[in-house]
Amino acid sequence: MTQRLMLLDTASLYFRAFFGVPDKVKAPDGTSVNATRGLLDIVAKLVTLYHPAQVIACWDDDWRPQWRVDLIPSYKAHRVVEAVSSGTDVEEVPDPLEQQIPLIREALSALGIPIIGAAEHEADDVIGTLASRATMPVDIVTGDRDLFQLVDDARDVRVIYTARGMSNLEVVTDATVVAKYGVLPSQYADFATLRGDASDGLPGVKGVGEKTAASLLQAHSDLAGIRAAVADGKLSAAASARFAAAAAYLDVAPDVVRVATDLDIAAPDVPLRALDDARADAARAFAEQWNLGGSMERALAAIATA
């Protein structure tokens, strides 16, 4: 069996768990545990289905980095609930989920799954860096299509896409991206820049939707090629006017949309394997303390047979 590195877009998964698992069962102190239970079950399912050699939980140390906001002020602005005195934006997260985030970190650590973040960067950037440096095939688990830009058949980097639910996972390869959008994964960041993305506060180029963006990239390879064609008068007057109006956005958007691949981080050499008796007992005690039910046991069992 091929040895694969699995990179988790952790926030994407725990948000999915929070909204997908009813908030009926609580810890003894009244803390909600639905996201924690759900994430453990997600880990168990992923490990059972894909048998990774290593799993890393990639973390948003900064979900809305200031350097991206400086370039595009609308970046994720609709998700901000307030600006605290430190100047750090606060993401809109339901209180019962916010309370579980430390618990989620403890649960992952109890399973021996490393958690990696990077200052002033998002989990996407951690994933991009680790995927680019991996010495084995990579599975990126996310519900965020922005990470399609990292798909690379030549290096056997694929996305396990969760947007349609954990019962309907989709393995995204080069062919998948081409079939869905008409562009190669290497063109996806430029495609997203042109199309825009309301969920990330990216305006895109007015009048350029997915089909137009794809056709422009098919004809001119990348955003630089499209802008060169505009400068050379090779596009229609209407298209040229759209790109002229969006020039300031297009000057900076690629740096916002492209995930980083050069952070000063490294994947720890921690193979996914069954915990020894002492650590397994500690994980079970932790699960009992927080009323995690069978979710921890299912995760332990999946890891033991990975």
Rank of each mutant, 00 (worst) to 15 (best):
M1D: 01
Q3A: 02
M6P: 03
L7F: 03
D9V: 01
A11C: 07
S12T: 04
L13G: 03
Y14D: 04
A17S: 12
A17C: 13
F19V: 04
G20H: 14
G20A: 08
V21E: 11
V21Y: 04
V25Y: 11
A35C: 06
G38Y: 05
L39R: 02
L39Q: 04
D41L: 15
I42V: 13
T48M: 14
Y50D: 02
Y50L: 02
A53G: 08
A57C: 02
W59C: 01
D61A: 15
R64L: 14
P65S: 08
W67A: 10
R68I: 12
V69L: 12
V69Y: 04
D70P: 15
L71N: 07
P73D: 13
S74G: 08
K76W: 12
V80T: 14
V80P: 09
A83Q: 13
V84A: 15
D89G: 12
V93W: 05
E98W: 12
E98R: 14
Q99R: 15
I104D: 06
R105C: 10
A107S: 11
A110E: 12
L111E: 00
I115C: 05
I116G: 00
G117R: 01
A119H: 06
H121K: 14
D124S: 05
T129Y: 07
T129W: 00
L130C: 05
R133V: 05
R133A: 11
A134M: 01
T135F: 00
V138W: 00
D139I: 00
V141H: 03
T142E: 02
D144H: 07
D146C: 10
Q149W: 02
V151P: 03
R155M: 13
R158S: 14
I160D: 00
G165K: 15
V171M: 13
V172W: 03
T173V: 07
D174V: 02
A175Y: 14
A175N: 12
V177N: 06
S186F: 12
Q187H: 09
Y188T: 10
Y188R: 11
A189M: 12
A189R: 02
A192N: 09
R195L: 15
S199R: 09
S199E: 08
D200E: 09
D200I: 02
D200F: 01
K206H: 06
V208G: 09
S215I: 05
Q218M: 09
Q218W: 10
A219W: 15
H220C: 10
H220A: 10
S221T: 07
S221H: 10
S221I: 10
A224F: 11
G225A: 07
I226Y: 06
R227Y: 05
D232V: 14
K234D: 12
A241R: 05
R242F: 08
R242V: 14
A246H: 06
D251H: 07
D251I: 08
V256D: 04
V257D: 03
A260F: 08
A260I: 05
I265S: 02
I265H: 03
D269T: 11
D269I: 00
P271E: 06
P271N: 10
L275A: 08
A278K: 08
A282S: 04
A282F: 11
R284P: 08
A285E: 13
F286W: 15
F286S: 13
Q289R: 06
Q289K: 07
W290L: 08
N291S: 12
L292F: 13
L300E: 03
A304L: 09
